[in-house]
Structure formats: C-alpha cells, structure tokens
Nucleic acid binder design. Structure first.
Length: 353
DNA sequence: AAGTCGGGGGA
DNA sequence: TCCCCAGACTT
C-alpha cells in the first residue's frame, strides 16, 4: 500500500532541492536557517545564512556580538525583530549552558513560535512533531478541502491533528522536509501542477475543482501613508545620523535626521521645520523629490534634502560618522538605497557634493 | 482575533 | 499591480 507519507518521501527523494541547512544536525545552524526563512523565500535568505554562519560560526559567537553587529548583518532582509530576537535567543542559550532540545523548551526562546520550535526539534533532535508553515497549510488545506485562510487557528488545529495521525515515528524529519518541499514546489500557490500530482486522486479540493480558491485569502489591510523628509547633513566627510526608537518600524536601526509629516511637503514647507541648530550653519544643497517605498502595512514617501555645514556642531540625540563608517551601521533599505545611489558607501564624497 | 513587523521576486 | 513567502509578537 502506498500511504501519504510514502508518496511524499518518494516525491521528495526525486525533487528535493539541495539546501545547506538540510546537510547539518547542528541545532544552531538550523535555528539560524529557520529564523532567516520566516516569511522569506529560500533564495532571498540563502546568502544571509552563509554570512551569519561565517561571521558567527557558533551560538556563543552570536551571543557575544553587539546588537548593532547583528542588525548590520541582517540589513536588507526585513522584519528586523527577527534579528533582535535571534540575538536574545543566542544569549539565552549560552546562559542555559545547553541548547534546548525539545519543542516545548525551544518555544520559550524569543522569536521562536509554534512553527520554528517544531522545525528545530524535528530537524536537529528528531522529535516526532509535525511542522505547519504556509506551504504545509496550503497543501493540507487543499488535500482535505478546508476552506479557511492561513491565520485560522481552528483550521490549523484540524491540520495538525491530521498530520499527527500520519507522521511516521521513524524519520519524521524527512517527512516534515518532504511536506514543506511538496507544498512549496508541487502544491504551490499559483498554478499548482495538479495533473501530474501523485496525490491528486486523494485530493478533495482537486475533485471538487476548488484548488485555486484554497486557501482563502484574507482581505489585505490598507497601507497607511507616511511622509519621511530626511535631512542629509554633511560636514567635512562626515554625515549626521540618529538611531530609531521602538514602537515603530526599523527599531534600533539608523537613519538621517527625520522630519515626518502627515502630508506631502514642498521644500518651502519643509524649510521652517528644520531644527535651528542645523539650519543656522547650513547652506542648502540638492533636494531629492519624493520616492515611494512599500512596506506590508505602510506606504512611505521619502524626500532627501542635502544640507552642507561649514563646521561640525554637536546636536542632541544625533551623531556624526565619517563616510567610511557608514557600513558599520544598520540602515533600512530606504536609507541604504540612497547611500548606494549616491556612492556614499565607498567612503568618498557623495555624487551630489 | 486583529494589527504590526520588510523586502523582493514573479506573474 | 497584486500575491505571498520555512511566522511571531503585541494589543
């Protein structure tokens, strides 16, 4: 008889991608990969995984780094609370003197939720527990024809119960890998290849022609519009930056002095809002008009106004850094793009000066 | 239970 | 443009 697990494992053997975190049992490396891959496609996270392992080969290396170093390495990947929590988790593991080796202990680590704790417990410690990520939800929801969206806790419960009833006691890890890989490559979101699917005869959604409508989609929240007017304040090869606070996007990351407004501002509207301690010594340089930057819940319109100072004045809550030290500071993409486009990351004077 | 947290690749 | 990605945390 050909059970679902057997079918999946056979499919996996034939179609699996060669991914680095599948070649190790090191719980730290697996933790790293799982955190990086939260809400992130494999090809987007791959380089970060290698860089983190190279920079911090062991969990103790990560634990003894500064948060700024960790955020700096995470720069560009998004959802930066993952980096801050990963750093906290590493410190916790070092304190514990041993790596948590059960899903329930792993669940206590910051940034480690139901999916990630199950994944690490399964892949690193061979615990018999099913993983339930977006790929698995989609696959099983279609197989059982569960018309719900992925945030539906009741549907997750049904799916978990089903998975627990079929998960093999021996090599549950391969079964879990196969589950996710199948959801990702075969039972994919758009245009799944149902005609050649080895499970189509058992797929209720397929029989009922409901595959394309499962899982249900949640109505997308509207993006809040924000207007970020950045001041690019320069003086003798240095630039003025500040660190962002909490309770907002990009917590603890750096940016230029910011004037946020509820509406789009013209440069005439902006001028009177520039802090006096900056403005009084400044000559106004180039003005970069609005660009749009999309986040999942926000739509940010940015402008950049260059101000050249003739002497370095100290400004409360902000610090001057030489161009060459920009690369040591974690910036959100909106700032990093500006730095790139104007050659500021090369330690030279920017293009517009 | 709903809102918030990034960024990018592909259709 | 829209969709969605190896989700978790806060409110």
């Amino acid at each position: 008889m050909n059970t679902i697990p057997n079918t999946l494992i056979d499919w996996y053997t034939a179609h699996r991608r060669d991914l680095p975190w599948r070649k190790t049992k090191d719980p730290y490396a697996i933790l790293l990969s799982e955190i990086i891959l939260q809400q992130t496609r494999v090809d987007q996270g791959l380089d970060y995984y290698h860089r983190f392992l190279e920079t911090f080969p062991e969990v103790s290396d990560l634990a003894s780094a500064s948060e700024q170093e960790v955020l700096n390495l995470w720069q560009g990947l998004g959802y930066y609370s993952r980096a801050r929590n990963l750093h906290k988790a590493a410190k916790r593991i070092v304190e514990l003197n041993s790596f948590p080796d059960t899903s329930s202990e792993l669940l206590k680590l910051p940034g480690v939720g139901p999916y990630t704790s199950a994944a690490i417990a399964s892949f690193a410690f061979d615990e018999v527990i099913p993983v339930l990520d977006g790929n698995v939800f989609r696959f099983i929801a279609r197989l059982l024809c569960i018309e719900a969206d992925p945030s539906n806790e009741q549907a997750k419960k049904v799916i978990r119960t089903f998975l627990e009833s079929i998960i093999p006691k021996e090599d549950a890890a391969s079964f879990n890998q196969a589950l996710m890989e199948f959801g990702s490559l075969q039972c994919k979101p758009q245009k799944p290849n149902c005609e050649t699917c080895p499970l189509n005869s058992e797929c209720i959604a397929f029989k009922q022609s409901k595959v394309s409508s499962i899982p249900l989609k949640k109505e997308k929240p509207k993006r809040r519009k924000r207007y970020f007017n950045y001041l690019v304040v320069l003086e003798n090869g240095k630039i003025l930056v500040q660190q962002r606070g909490g309770a907002d996007i990009w917590e603890n990351m750096f940016e230029f002095p910011l004037i946020e407004s509820l509406e789009a501002l013209d440069i005439e509207d902006l001028a009177p809002l520039i802090p006096n301690d900056i403005l009084k010594n400044a000559s106004v340089g180039r003005y970069f008009r609005r660009k749009k930057h999309l986040l999942s819940h926000q739509e940010i319109y940015s402008t950049f106004l260059v101000l050249n100072l003739d002497k370095e004045v100290s400004i409360e809550g902000k610090k001057w850094i030489p161009f060459a030290e920009l690369e040591d500071h974690p910036f959100p993409r909106i700032i990093d793009k500006f730095l790139e486009e104007n050659s500021l990351l090369e330690g030279k004077n920017p293009r517009f000066v």
